[in-house]
């Protein structure tokens, strides 16, 4: 790996729930020892079911949540040790696009105000006229029109709002954008437009994406590498091709086999791995491998010890006792 823009090592985020008066607080292990790197200019897809902790990983990177443990090194600086004041400079370089385009824009501000606010606060663009020009440029860049600056968010469609969200992220000229399910609230036709826009912007501006999603086909389309999360841990991390074509981890295989194939004859003939039971609660995750109670291949050692994330093939990592390194 050449130059890691973001390096997350052993990230842990636990939430205490209930009982601050006397009663014993329970702990939700939302993220439990996640490590990965993102190289400048690449897109890392982070997939997993609802509640597996993928959004929390994103929020920890953005320092919207303070991690319980682990290190997040962004562009050479360890964010976990930074004071609020020093964070401000880093935050400019790290932006976010949210899932819900309806609640991610302040309903009381016009699009122009939303886009020019960061320019003003961080003194990126001095002068009102220059800011207006930059807002126009940002709007055009995401495929909107200059006149949209005077509109309020409720006067735009979902797809247009999401474009505004992207423009807001671009306003500060960040190097990393955390895309937290940026298309899952949109219609399929709009999804494609937004994905193409994100790819186009990446090519033009040299952006790096952490693309969080649960839609495997969207992730496959946009990502260079993909990490699969389950119950707060990374199960498998590999190049897109390797992960989709030769998945090693039983969980990844089950996940991929749930994606329908748009061809009835192939669909009827293929093997489907159906998992038993439900995802265990992160309040009380299983001992050993968190996946073992549902794993079709589980053995005794799976319940006894936690499998580490090992490099099975060059660049292909998996956390499973049952896959052995080849070569």
């Amino acid at each position: 790996m050449t130059q890691a823009l973001l390096e997350v090592s052993n990230l842990v985020k636990h939430f205490a729930v209930g009982g601050w008066r006397g009663g014993k607080a329970a702990t939700v292990r939302a993220v439990d020892g996640v490590s990965f790197q993102i190289t400048r200019g690449e897109t890392l897809g982070l997939v997993g079911e609802s509640g597996c902790g993928k959004t929390t990983v994103g929020r920890c990177i953005l320092q919207l949540e303070r991690p319980t443990g682990g290190r997040i090194v962004f562009d050479g600086a360890d964010l976990t040790g930074l004071a609020q004041h020093d964070l401000r400079a880093v935050r400019r370089k790290m932006q976010v696009i949210f899932q819900d385009p309806y609640s991610s824009l302040n309903p009381r501000m016009t699009i122009g105000e939303i886009l020019s606010e960061p320019l003003k606060v961080h003194r990126l663009v001095p002068g009102r006229a220059e800011r207006e020009a930059r807002v126009r440029e940002l709007l055009l860049q995401v495929g909107l029109l200059a006149q949209h600056a005077r509109r309020y968010p409720h006067q735009l469609s979902g797809g247009q709002r999401q474009r505004v969200g992207i423009a807001r992220a671009l306003a500060m000229e960040p190097s990393l954008i955390v895309c937290d399910e940026p298309v899952s609230a949109l219609d399929v036709s709009i999804q494609a437009q937004i994905i193409n826009l994100l790819e186009d912007l990446q090519a033009r501006l040299g952006l790096t994406y952490l693309f969080i999603a649960h839609d495997l086909s969207v992730v496959r389309h946009i990502s260079d590498r993909v990490a699969v999360m389950y119950l707060g841990r990374i199960m498998e991390l590999a190049d897109r091709r390797a992960l989709y074509e030769e998945p090693l981890h039983p969980y990844t295989r089950a996940l991929l086999s749930a994606v329908p194939i748009p061809d009835p004859s192939l669909e009827a003939g293929r093997e489907r791995v159906v998992l038993r039971g439900e995802v265990p609660s992160p309040l009380n995750p299983p001992a050993g491998c968190v996946f073992h109670p549902r794993c079709p291949l589980a053995e005794a050692r799976c319940a006894a010890s936690v499998p580490g994330l090992r490099e099975i093939k060059p660049g292909h990592w998996a956390a499973c006792h049952l896959v052995d390194p080849i070569a």
């Binding site: 935050r91 949210f98 991610s104 824009l105 302040n106 501000m109 606010e117 960061p118 606060v121 807001r168």
Partner: peptide, 22 residues
Amino acid sequence: EMPYVDAARAAGFGHPRIILRH
């Protein structure tokens, strides 16, 4: 808990601005 408040925090805005403007 609204994402636009998170967005304001992620943008590095100060507390008074987030409270008064957002």
